[in-house]
């Protein structure tokens, strides 16, 4: 089982054992990780699951598709490593992934 580490905006780390096939958003919600609202429940339609992906994993995680990019455009403090966590599916490849949640979701 891959481990995903969630880091909140003031640096607290929460390593979580994740299940393959679930998303980084779902894993956070199921484990009550703060900092992700996921208002639309994973439909790529609200942008309240915004996270920053650790640079070391950028290639493995890949680039956002069209719709995700459109939604990200309206999140706050978007950076080159911003992704919507409901669009990142967990697999063994992502074992060790670290994502940081923003101070607030918009």
């Amino acid at each position: 089982m891959p481990t995903i580490t969630y880091i909140d905006h003031d640096g607290t780390e929460r390593p979580i054992e994740a299940k393959n096939g679930e998303t980084v958003m779902e894993t956070a919600i199921k484990n009550s990780v703060p900092g992700i609202d996921a208002d639309c429940g994973g439909a790529c339609a609200c942008a309240t699951c915004h996270v920053y992906v650790d640079e070391a994993f950028m290639d493995k995680v890949g680039q956002p598709e069209d719709m995700e990019q459109s939604m990200l455009d309206f999140a706050e403090n978007v950076q080159a490593n911003s992704r919507l966590s409901c669009q990142i599916q967990i697999s063994d490849d992502l074992d060790g992934l670290r994502v940081t949640t923003p101070e607030s979701q918009h």
Binding site: D37, A38, G41, A43
Partner: peptide, 20 residues
């Protein structure tokens, strides 16, 4: 539970800008 999961603010690119 999950009270935020409602449609009052819409979804997609036009989702309410002033929700917060």
């Amino acid at each position: 539970e999950r009270a935020r999961h409602h449609v009052s603010f819409g979804f997609g690119i036009h989702r309410c800008m002033g929700n917060r």
